[in-house]
Design a protein around this nucleic acid. Structure first.
Lengths: 184, 184
DNA sequence: TACAGACTTTACCAATCAGTACAACTCGCT
DNA sequence: AGCGAGTTGTACTGATTGGTAAAGTCTGTA
């Protein structure tokens, strides 16, 4: 019937928003259909693997975004301090001051963790090591850099949980300020 | 038929474990039935409100546990430093070094947050304020005490996310050590 | 104009979901 | 022994789940 000129890639942001809002189990095919504007057949045309393939595509998309906008700048920048500051601002923007949930973190706490274990692990492991690289370039010892990086990544996730629990974006913003202060 | 000598309260730990493992949506009545050893009739006998009432009971049970074992000691102890240390150890034990998920945190990230919003908010708000009280008694200014408390509670949640994502209890233990060091 | 392949709609499937109803059973009490 | 309250197993409902299949419509090419 009517053609929606939809490429697979065009659907992914809507898919991501849906998984963010409903979680993996909560995002039923009917909900996904509504949110994307695609019928069942179209969804299975683009994602023959069903919901699992949709979620995988979303995780890949997120990973690519973070790699380009956050991880790579941290590793490659000549000015590590500036790269870290940029990271903090980008993270705060990305998560809408804690109003937006981290899908990867949410999946990690969910029982779907095992199904997407390697993508989840990668996301955090690369984040941690990229940040550690920047910290080392900024003058920290390797051990201390890794420790600081681990702490910062965990703190961001914790801030997301707490801000959402308290329903208070300011909680998230305060946490990001603390994190940045501690990294610089 | 056979009587299982089951009181409502006896079922709650098994219920909690089920929600922890499967999440709210993932914990179907069949799964709950298996894990608790109770049939559908019994479950609805004890929890006429269905799954929602079961989850509410679990949240109440958790809240009572934390109130007794963690929050109250923080507020009432004459030795706030010792109370904080005790908290860190109790938390580490309770979460099995990060192998066990925090149901409240998981619910906060899930789309069921709104349904249990007040219980979730309470859990974290009381934790934060109890810890702040102990920190103030330990000599911190009120503002600084609240800030430190907020940070610590968030960090614990973040450590749970990260440890589960990396599948590494050591990550959680390192985080708890950092948290304790910063509080004392 | 005609055909091929990309896309979409629609109806459908078996499985599972939360929840209900009720009979069958067990136990404490008299 | 037998009553009544409490507890449990089973069968059921109607809705929804993820997923399939076939028939249809559109667009680009030739």
């Amino acid at each position: 019937m009517a053609r929606t000129i939809a490429e697979r890639a065009d659907v992914i942001p809507a898919l991501a928003e849906t998984f963010r809002e409903y979680g993996f189990e909560g995002a039923s095919l009917s909900v996904i259909g509504e949110k994307t504007g695609l019928g069942r057949g179209s969804l299975y045309h683009f994602f023959p693997g069903g919901k699992e393939e949709m979620a995988t595509a979303v995780l890949q998309h997120i990973d690519a975004w973070f790699e380009e906008r956050i991880y790579r700048p941290l590793r490659q920048s000549d000015d590590p301090q500036a790269a870290i500051s940029t990271m903090c601002r980008a993270v705060s923007d990305y998560f809408h001051s804690g109003c937006r949930v981290c899908i990867v973190g949410a999946f990690a706490l969910d029982n779907v963790r095992d199904r997407f274990a390697s993508a989840i692990l990668d996301y955090f492991a690369v984040w941690k090591s990229s940040l550690a690289t920047a910290l080392q370039k900024a003058g920290h010892e390797q051990d201390q850099a890794i420790d600081l990086a681990e702490e910062a990544v965990a703190n961001i996730q914790g801030a997301l949980v707490l801000a959402r629990a308290l329903n208070d974006p300011a909680t998230f913003e305060r946490a990001m300020i603390r994190i940045e202060k501690r990294l610089l």
